[in-house]
Simulated assay, not measured.
Amino acid sequence: MSEKFEIRREVVVPGTPEQIWAAISAETAGWMFPSPLEIPADGSSPDSPIIATWEPPRELAIHMQGPDGWFNNLEYVVEARDESTAVVRYVHAGVFAEDWDNQYDGASKHTDFYLHSLGQYVRYFAGKPVTYVSAEGPESSSSPQAMGTLRSALGITSGTAVGDATSVEVPGIGTVDAIVDYINDWFIGLRTEDALLRFYGRNAFGGTVDAAHHLFAEGADGGSATTAWQAWLDGVFA
C-alpha cells in the first residue's frame, strides 16, 4: 500500500539568489546529479510539463505525476539573507509504495547531504563547467561494516572531523588530496581544489556503497575518471 511523505528543510547557502537559482535549475550536475531538463540558453522556462513554477531567481517547483495517485514534487524557495548568503526553503513530497520507514529515512538523510553539497558547490565552484561521474559499489559493499571499510580506504579515522585533510591513491588518477567537508555514519564528502567527491553509504538503506563525483578541472575526462573510481571502489570491497 502506497503512503505519502514530505521532507522539509531550510538551509543557509553562501551565495546570491542568482547563483543558487542557477545551481538548482541548470547546474544540478555540480552538486547532485544531472537534471533531465533542458534549460534554454536565455534562462527561460524549459518546455516541460513537469515545471509547475518558474520564477527566477526566487521559486522553482517541479511536479511529476503518475498513475494510481503517484506523484513526486520538488520545490525550492530562495530568499536573500544578506549580500553573501541566502535562505533556501526546500520541500520534497511524494509517495513511497513499500518499505515506507526505510525509504523515508534514506530520502531524508540524502536530502541533508545534497543540500550541503549545494552549499559547497555555490561557495567554491559556482558556474564552472562540470563533469559528473558515478560508480556503484559491488555486492560486498552492502554489508553493515562497509562504511568502516570505506573510511579506512579514504584515510579517515574515528577522530577525523570536518575540515581535516586526507589523501587517497586512486590508480589511473594518482594521489587525491582533499579536505573532509561532510562526514557521518551514512555519507562522506571530500573537497579538492577542482572536485567535490561524494560517497553514499546506501548499504544502510538496502543498497551498496556508491560514489558520485563532480569534477571541475578543465578538460576532465569523464570516461577515464569513471573507470578509475569504479576500479578503486571494486578494489576497496574485493
Rank of each mutant, 00 (worst) to 15 (best):
K4E: 10
P40F: 12
D210W: 10
A220W: 00
L150K: 07
V209I: 12
R9T: 12
G201E: 08
Y182M: 04
G206N: 00
V130P: 07
V91W: 09
W21E: 12
A225K: 10
W21Y: 07
G69C: 06
T131F: 03
V209C: 13
T175Y: 08
A204R: 15
L233M: 02
M32S: 15
H92T: 02
K128L: 05
S25L: 09
A41S: 13
T131C: 11
V180W: 06
I62C: 08
T85G: 01
E59Y: 06
S117F: 06
V88F: 10
W21T: 08
Y90V: 02
H213F: 11
V91N: 08
G148L: 11
N72F: 12
V12Y: 08
D164F: 05
I188L: 11
E136K: 15
A107S: 12
G219R: 04
R58Y: 11
S45Q: 14
Y132G: 05
I156L: 09
D181I: 07
A217S: 11
P34H: 01
L60A: 01
N203A: 02
I50M: 15
S84V: 10
A86P: 10
V168Q: 03
G219S: 04
I7E: 06
S25K: 09
V162D: 06
L196R: 13
M147T: 13
G207K: 00
T175K: 08
Q120V: 14
E6R: 09
F96C: 00
P67V: 05
N102E: 02
L118P: 06
M1V: 08
I24R: 02
H63I: 13
G222D: 00
A23D: 08
P67S: 14
W100Y: 10
P144G: 03
A212S: 09
G206F: 01
S158K: 15
D185N: 13
L150N: 11
W229V: 00
H110P: 09
Y132R: 11
G137A: 04
Y104S: 09
H63N: 10
D99G: 02
E79S: 13
G219T: 03
V13Y: 00
T160Y: 05
W54H: 07
L118A: 03
V170Y: 08
Q65G: 06
H116F: 11
V87W: 09
Y182H: 02
Y76I: 01
G174S: 01
A220Q: 12
A29L: 05
R81E: 14
P144N: 01
I156S: 00
S142L: 01
A107P: 11
D112A: 06
Y124E: 10
E193D: 13
A165T: 14
E169V: 13
T53H: 15
T16E: 06
W100D: 02
I179H: 06
V130E: 02
Y200Q: 09
L60W: 08
D105M: 13
Q145S: 14
R151P: 05
A161S: 15
Q120I: 07
P40T: 11
G30A: 01
N73I: 13
T28L: 11
G94W: 03
P57E: 07
P14M: 02
D47S: 14
